[in-house]
Amino acid sequence: MTSTNDTYSHSITPHNSLFDFRLAELWQYRDLVTLFVKRDFVAKYKQTVLGPVWFFIQPIFQSLVLTVAFGRMAGLPTDGIPPILFYLAGITAWNYFSNCLRATSNTFAANAHLFGKVYFPRVVTPISVVLSNLIQFGIGLLLFLIIYLYYMLTGSHFHPNNTLFLLPVLICSMGIMGLGLGMLISSLTTRYRDLQYLVDFGMQLLMYATPVIIPLSAIPVKYTPIMLINPMTGIIETFKYSFFGASIFSWQLLSYSIGFSISIFLIGFIIFNNTEKNFMDTV
């Protein structure tokens, strides 16, 4: 105890300051992030026979259903791309975003028991959720690439182009948008749970306002503004454009999406950070 009388290394006060992000503390808990990711991943497929194969089965069936329903029966255009590949691309990207958002949006409610017993930076939980979804997305992307190469070798005409280098940016953007929105919603739902119910069907509605199934080029002009406001549109379109060279790509649209992701992430993070201290009393 060489320090002077009134200095203490830590203190606890009623409120956190708004912009005190305690990133150093978060860094100390990095091992917890990896352990949570591992836990989620291992626990998900323990005691299943097919194990991680389920990661493949889900998107394949989803695309098959879409191919039959929208491609064959409704006859919607796919920008000249083989329908199954077109839908798989959209589904893979969309599922990543949607899984991140859904899983992080009930962080507080789902972890109330854990949070009530021990302190660690709460933001560890949503971050690890996004990371374990990233692994799942990686597997989905692998599946997509296999089918993509198959079509390429059998003579379909794609024009993969150098926007492919934007892929990491797209993935990050989707991840932090899902994380930001998820943290925002989970903070708002600690006290009033109404929003939680909105998330489930809201995500379904949002999918139809995103060019996952119907390409942006095939949307009637009077609906395009809705599509353009949706920050996911730019990401999904760029994703498809980079692989197929056939959708719409614009820097404007993409910048809007990225800008939105970053802002919503910051807002979500700040609000989450201010909620975590007293949420236990209201959840």
Partner: peptide
């Protein structure tokens, strides 16, 4: 719970070392 930072105090202050 307040000492372990699981929930925050309504008023007051705690200082500690370590």
């Amino acid at each position: 719970k307040i000492l372990s930072k699981v929930t925050g105090p309504t008023t007051g202050r705690i200082d500690f070392n370590g």
